[in-house]
Design a protein around this nucleic acid. Structure first.
Lengths: 349, 349
DNA sequence: CTGTTAGCGCGTTCAA
DNA sequence: TTGAACGCGCTAACAG
């Protein structure tokens, strides 16, 4: 049978000291001096008895749970990358991650995060939001509660709370340069065919900050090269439309500059349309995506060239930011953090 | 500023009762009778003061952290599905999930799970292992510590600890039936071409329980139909080998019965080989995979027909099993749980 | 400089 | 229905 739980009291007795010394040794308490000798004795006792601090008792005293909540949609494949990044930072700082998925659709089960905070189960919150997320009511609650908080990809244009996002503008330039670079000389002039920008859209994404930035970045890129932008917008999940589009634009050769699509999640539809038309991606048609939600660089055939949003780094940075808030007190201004995207060279361009 | 923390003491005074009553109301303590009247008064006070139980203090007293550890490889995309299932069960039982990734490669950072248990941060452990995982040293430690534990997909053939796994045998039959069903009449006799079974292999998977089961299931399926099995084994990550194989077998028509591959993760290579040979999957070549790690039913073009391992349900069941262990005491026998796989009908067969 | 004593934090539970 | 003790570690004030 497992023997009785070992407490600091046991350790103290075993080492012939008082419990405060045990605590001092464990925490390197500055105020309390401990001779090297006793220190060793305590550590020895700890080892012998296999003593472990009771995290609850410690938390109760210190007021820190040493846990951060990670809230996000478990259906989103890239949530894992975020968690990985968070994990790394947390590990380095001795923190744990409490997983809090947002299961239901519309409902604000975010409020349970605040409950967790009030219960002292967590010291801070990281939410993985989509780029159009900006619920100011939630932001108010967070501020009201005084809980350290940061949103990943949400609240891009709202200064009330901290947030971290990718440089969507830069990501478009990256993609377009790659697309154009493959076409001929690096110094391609206005004569070279301009890449077509295909913007998939859903009701939620219309006024969206990310989409707007991408669109503008496309326009600017074209302007810099003094060629006219060719923007197309399409409803999401309309594979037949995609096919029609492809057929039409191929007939008149207007796709010779390649195609940049905003969401990789629509790329399978695109590939499928090409498949039906017996077009070979990467040969008859050069394609890139402005994100990599579907991990298309590894899974699609031919491998998708795309831009990678750095969710891993975002997670790590998010944790750092939240921890900063904890130290900084409540007067600290919300931070807005931006990270660069990177390029995946596949076979599709 | 956030006002001072509200304790049960404040609530008690506000409601004109003693703290024990507050506790009794909150926990519906059976032994203690509380009049409807006082009950209401307490709830009212709780509401007015916005009181929240301090989780640490409660845990300290009850000895339950109300947390389960989820350990697994954050690089594995299906870990998310497992978490989703765990989340669902946990939510229903008032539990939280503490995320504990296994970051490094070989190192046994699993031991930190035991530390967490000794620290009373968690009440139980669920690990997401691969099918060849069977570290009996770890199992011993777990038993020794007396921590409720279950492995998902590990320890299939070791009875010392609880585990939960998919019915890999059944999954193969499912796939083969689908593959054969598409070829002609349901009552296809020995005359119909037999599907080829392609087993990708790595050093770790050789003696592997899952692979052996799949192989045997294939043999049995063939035996039932009195046709001779056609098994092929290939080293993983050898795209050129795959291409050679495809070319050869197509020339002699031996792939007319279709192809079943054990790992979907090698399917992109297969698709790529077909792509190079200008073969059209689903038309010139019918393909299925025995798992769906890569989510090929949605991402690949044409959509992959495959078998789905029910990670979501496994996660939910795993949590239930761990909670059962907590109630049952340490005399309870380890459980071995099996779940059925299901079929995804795609376009590749 | 080294180490001790006493009291706290907060909810739960058992004897009264 | 209540008072009092308890669980376990932290830390300020204090003593050698």
């Amino acid at each position: 049978m497992s023997r009785k739980r070992v407490t600091s009291f046991d350790v103290a007795r075993r080492a012939g000291v008082s419990r405060s010394v045990v605590s001092a040794v464990l925490n390197n308490t500055p105020g309390i001096g401990v001779s090297e000798e006793t220190r060793e004795a305590v550590l020895e006792a700890i080892r012998e008895l296999d003593y472990h601090v009771d995290a609850q008792a410690r938390s109760m005293k210190t007021g820190k749970s040493m846990c951060l909540a990670a809230y996000g949609n478990l259906k989103h494949p890239l949530f894992l990358q975020l968690l990985e990044g968070m994990q790394k930072s947390c590990e380095a700082r001795g923190y744990q991650i409490l997983l809090c998925s947002g299961s239901r659709g519309g409902g604000q089960d975010r409020s349970k995060l605040l409950t967790l905070y009030h219960q002292r189960r967590i010291d801070g919150i990281v939410t993985f939001d989509d780029t159009s997320y900006c619920d100011t009511a939630w932001a108010e609650e967070v501020i009201q509660a005084g809980v350290p908080y940061i949103s990943v990809e949400g609240f891009a244009e709202y200064d009330g709370v901290s947030s971290i996002q990718a440089d969507y503008r830069g990501s478009i330039a990256l993609a377009l340069d790659h697309l154009a670079g493959g076409t001929g000389s690096a110094a391609a002039g206005p004569s070279a065919a301009v890449p077509l920008y295909l913007e998939m859209a859903s009701q939620a994404s219309s006024g969206n900050w990310a989409e707007r930035n991408r669109r503008e970045a496309y326009a600017e890129w074209c302007a810099r090269r003094s060629c006219t932008p060719r923007l197309l917008q399409l409803e999401e999940s309309r594979p037949d439309e995609l096919e029609k589009l492809l057929a039409g634009h191929l007939a008149d050769g207007s796709l010779s500059g390649g195609l940049l699509i905003n969401w990789s999640s629509s790329v399978p539809d695109l590939y499928r349309a090409a498949w039906k038309l017996r077009l070979r991606i990467g040969e008859d048609l050069r394609v890139m995506a402005a994100d990599n939600t579907i991990r298309g660089h590894k899974l699609l055939v031919p491998a998708l060239s795309c831009v990678e949003i750095p969710y891993g780094r975002m997670g790590a940075e998010a944790v750092e930011a939240v921890l900063r808030q904890m130290d900084g007190g409540r007067d600290k201004q919300p931070e807005k953090i931006w990270l660069q995207a990177s390029l995946h060279r596949g076979e599709s361009v």
